[in-house]
Design a protein around this nucleic acid. Structure first.
Length: 234
DNA sequence: GCGACAG
DNA sequence: ATCTTGTCGC
């Protein structure tokens, strides 16, 4: 497990953070279909917090997209780099997530984030931000509709409905299990929305959430448990 | 001005 | 995100 510090020059205020988003948003690539679902490697990233001790732990788990077997994994821990502010989640997660990705012994392939990409107040959520910084294809799979609206998708697994910001489709509500609350998929970097949904469905054969985020979630929680006591002494 | 709001 | 036990159902 690697340890990270908040990068020099990291935004300290909400105003600075929004300015960074506005400066990077033009670098997002939306015209590529991205890697085909069911082949190659897919990586899930997630983060867990201990606000009391000011500790954050991130995990990256690489899966074989065909079998969903774990191929590689890594973790990173550090200090919390930004408070939670809706619309600025990336500034809280990215330093540690980047460290975990860099610690992987192999190429991540498509990266699946826990949160949003294009579906964001300034169209630059966590998945978009991570994609621009790494150049990797990324998508966001969120558990809640955030500030967006949607009509309930039909009951069968695989059904979708548009996720809307007014009349603009910023993502899709995707049913991954029959009659169970959908997940909310949006494009990050270098992946089409159709492809993002296909990947998400392929990654969620048994549970509502994709295996990538389930694995990453379990791993970062474990890393937090094991790292928190050590960093407390510091 | 007030409430809502990814994780 | 996180605090938290049992419990209903396949």
């Amino acid at each position: 497990m690697t340890t990270v510090r908040t990068p020099a020059g990291w935004p300290a205020t909400e105003e600075e953070a929004r300015a960074v988003q506005d400066g990077l948003r033009t670098k997002v690539v939306l015209g590529e279909p991205g890697p085909p679902p069911g082949a190659g490697h897919v990586t899930g990233v997630d983060v867990a917090y201990d606000d009391e001790r000011d500790v954050v732990a991130a995990a990256a788990v690489v899966l074989d997209a065909a079998t969903l077997d774990v191929v590689a994994e890594s973790t990173a821990v550090g200090r919390i780099s930004f408070p939670y502010v809706p619309g600025l989640l990336a500034f809280r997660e990215i330093p540690t997530v980047l460290a975990a990705l860099e610690a992987l012994p192999r190429t991540p392939g498509l990266v699946v984030c826990d949160g949003y990409g294009l579906a964001h107040p300034r169209r630059f959520g966590l998945a978009s931000h991570l994609g621009v910084l790494t150049g990797l294809p990324t998508i966001g799979v969120a558990k809640n509709p955030f500030t967006f609206t949607y009509d309930e998708p039909a009951a069968p697994r695989g059904s979708t409905s548009p996720l809307l910001a007014g009349t603009e489709e910023v993502g899709r509500a995707l049913r991954t299990r029959d009659a169970v609350k959908p997940v909310f998929v949006s494009v990050g970097h270098r992946v089409s929305l159709d492809n993002a949904c296909a990947h998400t469905l392929a990654l969620a054969p048994a549970y509502r959430l994709p295996e990538t985020t389930r694995r990453a979630d379990a791993l970062c929680r474990r890393a937090l448990r094991e790292a928190a006591p050590a960093l407390t002494a510091d």
